[in-house]
């Protein structure tokens, strides 16, 4: 049975570090950058476990700033 595999890209400069995507991700792919900030001073979200991503788009759906694009294939 094919399984979904996904990937996300995050527009880091648009991100406000609200953390809602991190909470929404069912497979713990995302985290806020602890040691880096974007050009507006936010600890932006980034992908820490890309292999976990199933392309469900939960992160993107709850993102208030439309920072996240989601890609998905079935393998």
């Amino acid at each position: 049975m094919p399984k979904p595999k996904g990937a996300v890209t995050i527009n880091k400069e648009r991100c406000k570090g609200c953390d809602l995507c991190v909470v929404a991700c069912p497979t713990d792919c995302l985290q806020l950058q602890k040691n880096d900030v974007n050009n507006r001073g936010y600890h932006y979200a980034s992908v820490i476990a890309p292999d976990n991503c199933i392309g469900c788009a939960s992160c993107a759906l709850v993102c208030p700033d439309a920072c996240i694009e989601v890609y998905k294939i079935m393998i």
């Binding site: 648009r14 406000k16 570090g17 609200c18 507006r40 392309g55 788009a57 759906l61 694009e69 890609y71």
Partner: peptide, 22 residues
């Protein structure tokens, strides 16, 4: 393979809302 992206009609202006605002 793209399944989700920012809405086309939402422009590039950074929204003034606070982080996490509904």
């Amino acid at each position: 393979n793209k399944v989700y992206s920012a809405p086309r009609l939402l422009n590039d202006s950074t929204m003034h809302y606070c982080p996490g605002c509904s």
